[in-house]
């Protein structure tokens, strides 16, 4: 067996999966998006840009996704970084394992159940009631963008913590000593050594969270209560409720395009920040 055939064989399962689960459906969706809605739901093949012309009707979903996904990613990063830093650099080896497990523990229950907990906490009898009690009245949390943001940060935090933790954990501590030895104050060591060397982790974490957030629909559905909805919710609505596949396909294709543009811009930014392309492991 030549190395060439062996390489092909190694790639075959992934390639087949990729073809069946990604390329074919995407092609179908792409073709559908130029079709028309069949009277009984589903799609009638055609070649019309009517669906795309209709996109502005779903502008709110795109707007919500395109604001809450980056804000959610950034917020998760700001909370995850100090946590990952503490875990990797400051905590003792014994505590490190315990704390790491604590970060994963939420994954042991379904996001659905955990989001219900948030529905209660953010709902009328949760935090607002508590605020009421201390004299801050009329705060509404549930079904606001803020509630969705809370849910996003909560749900995606571990996904952000892990890649950053890994990049900080494998950071050679002697580099920090060397920096200090050469006269750098602690915060300058952080800015010049720790932060740049953890960019691969930051990049991976952000990419992971951002891409998944673009397709998120459960958290907005539960904590946004139909008021704050994402493109994902629009898709569920169009494909399953109104059964307007042609229009749904156009929305889906647009989401893919938007995502591709966002990721390209993001990669440009990261490469400029000094990390090499290979550092972003998810790509």
């Amino acid at each position: 067996m030549t190395a060439r055939t062996r390489n092909w064989l190694l790639l075959a399962p992934a390639g087949a999966w990729f073809l069946v689960m990604l390329i074919i459906p995407l092609t179908v969706v792409f073709i559908f998006s130029f079709g028309e809605r069949a009277p009984a739901g589903g799609v009638v093949p055609a070649f019309t840009f009517e669906q795309y012309a209709n996109l502005p009707a779903r502008w709110a979903a795109f707007k919500n996704t395109m604001t809450l996904a980056p804000i959610g990613t950034l917020s998760a990063l700001l909370i995850a970084y100090p946590l990952a830093y503490y875990l990797a650099v400051k905590s003792s080896p014994k505590w490190k394992t315990i704390l790491l497990v604590l970060v994963i523990v939420p994954f042991w229950t379904s996001i659905l159940i955990r989001s219900y907990a948030w529905i209660f906490l953010l709902g009328g009898r949760g935090i607002p009631a508590l605020l009421d009690w201390v004299g801050i009245e009329g705060v509404r949390l549930i079904n606001t963008p803020f509630a969705v943001l809370i849910g996003i940060i909560y749900g995606y935090l571990p996904l952000m913590v892990f890649p950053i933790f890994v990049s900080l954990d494998k950071l050679d501590k002697r580099l920090l000593e060397a920096s200090s030895d050469l006269g750098a104050k602690p915060w300058r060591t952080f800015l010049q050594i720790t932060l740049p060397l953890s960019i691969p982790g930051i990049a991976t974490g952000c990419m992971l969270v951002f891409i998944l957030l673009m397709g998120e629909y459960l958290i907005p559905a539960l904590l946004g209560g139909g008021k704050v909805f994402f493109v994902g919710n629009a898709l569920v609505d169009l494909f399953l409720q109104s059964r307007n596949w042609a229009y749904g396909s156009a929305v889906a294709v647009t989401l893919v395009v938007v995502m591709l543009i966002a990721v390209t811009v993001y990669m440009r930014l990261i490469t400029r920040l000094g990390a090499s392309r290979e550092d972003v492991s998810i790509m």
């Binding site: 002697r174 580099l175 200090s180 030895d181 050469l182 050594i193």
Partner: peptide, 19 residues
């Protein structure tokens, strides 16, 4: 602290900044 001392060190594995 080390960063205030007029002393420098050559580390065993060099500890050069890879970036």
């Amino acid at each position: 602290e080390a960063h205030h001392r007029p002393v420098n060190m050559v580390f065993q594995q060099y500890a050069l900044f890879p970036h």
